[in-house]
């Protein structure tokens, strides 16, 4: 499995920002065999980074690797949506889920 890399754009130390960070860490804690890298970017301190990535809403999580880029907007509290999008659902379900996910993507 290729290594996962993320950029998480947040606005300061708001509750939403904190929740997004905690949620993401929590999901990966449940899948200890998956390696990932996360860069947290505060748009107030680094607005030019938000400009580069055309960020509209915060929090926004961008999966930068593997490609193609995937964006998840929100505080990541919708557990199933996030885990499915990132392919973190249980191993027994993984094959079926992966297919499901890619089909969904084609529709969008």
């Amino acid at each position: 499995m290729p290594k996962l890399a993320f950029e998480l754009f947040v606005t300061g130390r708001t509750r939403q920002s904190q929740r997004a960070i905690q949620n993401l860490r929590g999901y990966f804690a449940e899948a200890p065999d998956v390696e990932y890298e996360m860069t947290i970017i505060d748009v107030v301190e680094q607005p030019e980074r938000a400009e580069e990535r055309h960020i509209l809403a915060t929090p926004t999580l961008i999966r930068t690797s593997p490609l193609p880029p995937l964006r998840i907007i929100g505080d990541l509290s919708e557990r199933d949506v996030v885990k499915q999008a990132l392919g973190l659902l249980g191993a027994s379900l993984s094959t079926a889920t992966q297919t499901q996910v890619s089909e969904d993507h084609d529709h969008e």
Partner: peptide
Amino acid sequence: ETVIAGEY
């Protein structure tokens, strides 16, 4: 591709 998951 964009997914919405939670408050923002």
